[in-house]
């Protein structure tokens, strides 16, 4: 069995200033519901961008649009300078994706699922085997990989989804609340791994979470969405300055910018 997670073999030599993902003015409407309005953001290689926002803000829709799972009504999405709509399979080959609620094939074992994913990305046996085993050990799933996924806990399923997103060494990671259900150790491994991949391998990461401490700890930049529009974006310092809350944490900045800062009355009412 392979040991704990070691840094992955070095990936493509990315220029630190290369724009990995450019989302330019995308809009999306479902019937009468406007899900996204003129959303723009970019993720450069080696950077982690946190996508924050209240429930229903459009974070998942934006991420699905990057994957080509949602077709924007307007705007353009480029991956390493190429329009993703021009050659979707080529774009998807370079992306690792964890959806908000990963629906895995529960009738497969963890190993079979990861083998399936490796086949989808064209990994040969010599490449996939040590890599999968390394991830299984790192996420403490070794010994469970022969069991059907239907018997896994939510956290175990989330770990499998994470491994599936990482196994082909993507150049862009699109992670929709990837720490959901993870135990503290696995969450720490994931956070450190993302930082490691970004800084050493030049992987670009678009990352959504509701846990603002995590975003504050690992993101180089933050994009705050609200009601389908970009409310603010930039580094932590820039956001603090914009909110006029120098020295404050991301939670205060977020609540201030999204207009949900005054919660005292709500809490008092609920406590009665």
């Amino acid at each position: 069995m392979a040991g704990p997670l070691a840094p992955l073999p070095s990936g493509p030599d990315e220029s630190p200033d290369l724009a990995a993902l450019e989302v330019e003015g995308i809009s999306k409407t479902y019937g009468s519901v406007r899900a996204l309005t003129d959303v723009s953001l970019s993720v450069r290689t080696g950077r982690i961008v946190g996508l924050l926002g209240p429930n229903g803000a459009g974070k998942s829709t934006t991420m699905k649009a990057v994957l080509g799972l949602v077709r924007p009504d307007a705007g353009r999405i480029r991956l390493f300078g190429q329009d993703v709509a021009a050659d979707p399979p080529r774009a998807k080959q370079q992306i690792g994706y964890v959806p908000e609620s990963p629906a895995l094939y529960e009738f497969l074992t963890g190993a079979e699922y990861l083998d399936f994913v490796a086949d989808m990305y064209g990994l040969d046996a010599a490449t996939r085997t040590p890599r999968i085993q390394q991830f299984l050990a790192g996420f403490e799933l070794a010994g469970h990989e022969g069991s059907l996924i239907s018997g896994y806990s939510q956290g175990m399923k989330q770990k499998v989804a994470l491994i599936a997103a990482l196994v082909h060494r993507p150049r862009l990671l699109v992670l929709d609340e990837p720490l959901n259900g993870l135990d503290p150790r696995a969450a720490r491994v994931t956070k450190d791994l993302l930082r490691n991949l970004a800084s050493h391998e030049g992987v670009a990461v678009l990352f959504s979470t509701h846990v603002l401490e995590i975003a504050q700890a690992i993101c180089d930049q933050v994009v705050i969405l609200s009601r389908g529009t970009v409310l603010a974006s930039g580094t932590m310092e820039a956001l603090r300055a914009r909110a006029g809350l120098a020295g404050s944490g991301l939670e205060d900045v977020f609540l201030s910018l999204t207009g949900t800062g005054d919660l005292g009355d709500v809490v008092a009412a609920l406590a009665r």
């Binding site: 074992t109 190993a111 990861l114 086949d119 996939r128 999968i132 469970h144 990989e145 239907s150 018997g151």
Partner: peptide, 30 residues
């Protein structure tokens, strides 16, 4: 949803029968 151990783990690329029928690796996997 009790955990069921299905058997020994073996990682292997592709599916020879489907590959012989002309399917690519992702198609065979599906």
């Amino acid at each position: 949803g009790s955990e069921a151990d299905v058997g020994p783990v073996r990682f292997a690329a592709g599916h020879p029968w489907f590959s012989a029928a002309g399917l690519s690796a992702p198609e065979s996997a599906v």
